[in-house]
Design a protein around this nucleic acid. Structure first.
Length: 142
DNA sequence: GCCAACGTTGGC
DNA sequence: GCCAACGTTGGC
């Protein structure tokens, strides 16, 4: 079981839309490092849903429900995507500002590689972030 | 293969 | 709106 964080600009695709859609193909990734991360995702993996640019906070949790397959939005058929399903909202959204104040979280890619849109999160960081967001373990059971 | 110029992301 | 950090393109 791996943990991830995926970014979306709410102007382009927001958590509110994700709540409505429930299952959504995570398309449009056009960066090699992000692609590598998408490729490593397994069914059942969990990912934080982060609002970049507007909000700048972790607002939800999704589960990977379909592994790496060709991105239908790529005319060149070079890039791929995964499907994610809504798991739950984060009761208390975790802001970037807050993350920056926590010494244990200074190493996460969200801070160290601010441009990366799909990144791994360690189990330790995942647990800590869940505590901060007051996500109960009951919320993320299958 | 190097590097300058340019484009994009995303925080501030 | 600005800018830092990348990524990409194209001339040499």
């Amino acid at each position: 079981m791996n943990y991830w964080l995926i970014k979306s600009e709410p102007d382009a695709y927001s958590w509110q839309e994700q709540l409505k859609n429930n299952i959504e193909p995570w398309t449009g990734i056009r960066n090699h490092q992000a692609k590598k991360n998408l490729q490593s995702m397994k069914i059942g993996d969990l990912a934080f849903f982060y609002h970049s640019n507007v909000g700048k906070e972790i607002v939800g949790i999704v589960r990977i429900v379909k592994e790496y397959y060709p991105d239908p939005t790529d005319p060149d058929h070079k890039w791929s995507c995964v499907d994610v399903q809504t798991v739950c909202s984060v009761p208390v959204p975790i802001t970037l500002k807050q993350i920056k104040t926590i010494p244990e979280l200074q190493e996460i890619s969200l801070i160290k590689q601010s441009r990366l849109s799909v990144m791994p999160i360690t189990a330790e960081h995942w647990q800590l972030l869940c505590q901060l967001g007051q996500v109960s373990s009951h919320d993320i059971e299958k």
